[in-house]
Simulated scan of single mutants.
Amino acid sequence: MLPLRHTLTSLLAGLFLLPSMAAVAAGKCDRLVVTGSPDAPPYMWRDPQDPAHLMGANADLLKEAAGQMGIKLEFLFAGKRSQALEEVRTGRMDLLADTPLKSSELESLDFIHPPIAQNEIMVWTRAGRPQPFNSLADLQGHPGAISEKTRVTSAFENAIKDHLTLEKQPNLTQAFQKLMLGQVEFVLAGRYAGMALTQTLGMSRDLLAQPLPLDRPGLYLALSFNSACNDPWLRGQLAKKMTELAASGRSNEAVTRNLELWKAQLQQPTSATHQ
């Protein structure tokens, strides 16, 4: 048995060590590796000036939040959307910055509420169309198109499969071209992506969004279960910051700013074909 004095000395030494050990624990994640979709502007897309990294409204908002938390971020391109998801699932990267909430991912990802942004899926038609397309029922029996890159909620995706006739196009440019040629009667596309692209392609007077969005998919932050950074403090702080951002209006400012930036990039011939 150890002498009482030795035991007390050990206990005191342990108590003095506790603050430094806590500091190590709290500081174990002063840096997060973040990824996301390379093709979801104005929320997230690949930086044409630095293709190894991602940029966009979600990146700006998350950087603001992380700066207040004392955490450094690196937004890395991980490949197409499915590859980015796999990198985070495995823990090779810590965080997805723009993922829709899907029940199939709840076993590998912690989704942070509220979403960092919300997209609005609009019905785009040719100008002067006499019949309004304001609901899913209005679209039934009419041929339409959607880009493979357009993300919708799971419920809306099921409704599309059950009730609509949609051609999937590789990108939004080709979907809008089919609409201009009269090969389809409508296109389902995000409000901001559609707005930027019609303006850039000179179609803003010919193609218009109907007044009411049909779907509002949230874009969430999602932490990997396998990330060493995934702890209650980080999840709680991120949720707090997302709540503050939603109430502040800064999300809309970031979207507007990045929309203009993306439009400027689209006007460059090398980038316009990729949307």
Rank of each mutant, 00 (worst) to 15 (best):
T243D: 15
D50Q: 14
G91T: 08
T256E: 14
Q199A: 10
A26C: 05
K240V: 13
Q174N: 07
F111D: 09
A66G: 05
G194R: 02
L76V: 15
R191S: 04
L221F: 11
Q169I: 01
H163S: 14
T150S: 05
L179F: 02
S154G: 11
Q210C: 05
T198K: 03
L136C: 07
L8M: 15
P132G: 08
L95K: 06
R5G: 07
A189R: 11
T173A: 03
T99I: 05
P38S: 14
Q131F: 03
P19Q: 00
P114R: 00
T165F: 01
L106H: 08
G79Y: 11
F156I: 13
Q210M: 13
S82L: 12
A66W: 01
K28P: 06
A25Q: 04
F77M: 02
D60L: 02
R191P: 09
S147P: 10
S248C: 08
L166A: 01
T198H: 00
D47H: 03
R205H: 15
Q210H: 03
D162K: 12
S204M: 06
K63Y: 11
A193E: 15
L139Y: 00
G56I: 10
G249R: 06
Q183A: 15
L109E: 05
N119H: 08
P51C: 00
C229P: 10
W124M: 10
C229I: 06
T99V: 10
K178A: 14
A228I: 10
I112N: 07
S135H: 08
L17M: 12
L197G: 08
K149D: 12
P48N: 05
L197Q: 13
Q49I: 03
A52C: 01
A254M: 12
S135T: 14
T173V: 08
Q131V: 14
A59I: 06
K240P: 04
S227P: 10
L197Y: 04
F186P: 02
G67M: 05
A209I: 06
L223S: 02
L266V: 01
L201I: 03
L212Y: 14
M242I: 04
F77A: 10
A22L: 09
K102N: 12
P42W: 00
K72W: 04
G67E: 12
D50Y: 03
L181N: 14
F16K: 00
Y192T: 08
K178T: 06
K168H: 06
Q210A: 03
K263M: 01
E157D: 09
S204D: 15
G67P: 13
S10I: 15
S103P: 05
W45E: 12
S227R: 09
P130R: 10
D60K: 02
M44Q: 14
M1T: 14
Q140E: 11
P132W: 00
A26T: 09
E244M: 08
S154Q: 14
L181V: 09
L234P: 11
S20V: 13
A159T: 13
K80F: 08
E253F: 04
K80P: 09
M180K: 15
L4V: 13
V184I: 07
E185A: 00
A137C: 02
I160H: 03
A117S: 13
W45A: 01
L207Q: 07
L172Q: 14
A78G: 13
C29P: 13
L2Y: 07
A97P: 08
P115Q: 06
A97K: 09
L18Q: 00
S248V: 02
P3Y: 08
A65T: 11
L223R: 07
L212N: 14
S248M: 00
L136R: 07
T165C: 00
P143V: 06
V123A: 03
